[in-house]
């Protein structure tokens, strides 16, 4: 697969924090419409890799292409690029001073320059999609964690992203709230959205992922379909990790 055909192409990515190398020569290709789930123990570098895709972390070395455009090139308009890359955070990061509706409207107004009416219309559609239209006028503090995360997803979707990045979207949630969020993600995947998902939800990975990547120590140690990785892991560390999880 060439850089031009894929949605996201990561080539020889390396990342240093001071004198610690947290990503070492990472190469990942994500095709259009593909759902890639990234697994790995804490500290394996999977979140850092994800954050490099929209340059929340600046890669130390290597190249990243999105829809064929090199984002690691200093000439690229990073704000323009981010419009098409939606991101959902572990901590939701909703704007606490705005209602759910306004959270979803803000970037539409400021970045896409949509009119108030249009932004509100889109916002309501997206909130409906995540099942929270009735909470449109609630402040984040009045919503449960699961609801907040769904609003965060709606906020990202309102920008009509070409690819969605999920950074442990359910890790901060109480178990009973996880399901609602995963359901939204599942339906997104079924709708053909390109997704890169960092998660610990094995079941979700098995059911939804087109491809599973296992990272450890800043390197991709194993890659394949869910059945390949879960049922017949080649790498010892993958086996070990999956064993612990189960």
């Amino acid at each position: 697969m060439s850089a031009q055909d894929s949605m996201v192409s990561i080539q020889h990515l390396s990342k240093w924090f001071d004198d610690v190398e947290v990503l070492k020569d990472v190469n990942i290709e994500v095709a259009k419409g593909e759902v890639v789930v990234v697994l790995g123990p804490s500290g394996s570098g999977k979140s850092t890799m994800l954050r490099c895709i929209n340059l929340l972390e600046k890669p130390t070395g290597g190249h990243i292409y999105i829809e064929g455009q090199e984002i690691t090139n200093p000439k690229t308009d990073i704000n323009k690029l981010r419009e098409h890359v939606g991101m959902v955070f572990q901590q939701f990061n909703l704007f606490p001073h705005l209602t759910a509706l306004k959270n979803v409207m803000l970037a539409q107004r400021k970045v896409l320059k949509r009119s108030k009416e249009e932004a509100e219309k889109v916002a309501r559609i997206e909130l409906e999609r995540v099942g929270l239209l009735d909470r449109a006028d609630y402040l984040p503090a009045q919503l449960s964690g699961g609801q907040q995360q769904r609003v965060a997803i709606a906020r990202a979707l309102a920008m009509e992203p070409h690819v969605m990045l999920f950074d442990e979207a359910t890790s901060a949630l109480d178990p009973e709230l996880v399901r609602g969020v995963l359901d939204v993600m599942r339906s997104l995947a079924e709708g053909g959205m390109t997704m890169v998902v960092v998660t610990h939800e094995m079941q979700f990975a098995k059911e939804v992922a087109d491809r599973v990547i296992f990272m450890e120590g800043g390197v991709v140690v194993e890659e394949g379909t869910p059945s390949q990785v879960f049922d017949n892991p080649v790498n010892e560390r993958t086996k070990d990790f999956l064993g612990h999880i189960k």
């Binding site: 704007f95 001073h97 803000l106 970045v111």
Partner: peptide
């Protein structure tokens, strides 16, 4: 920091982030 990140990840510029997200809080 998450507020900056969320705002930037939505494509908002530094100035937009400052005035729409950070200052009101």
């Amino acid at each position: 920091k998450g507020q900056f990140e969320a705002s930037r990840s939505l494509g908002m510029s530094g100035t937009q982030t400052m005035f729409s997200v950070i200052i009101p809080q």
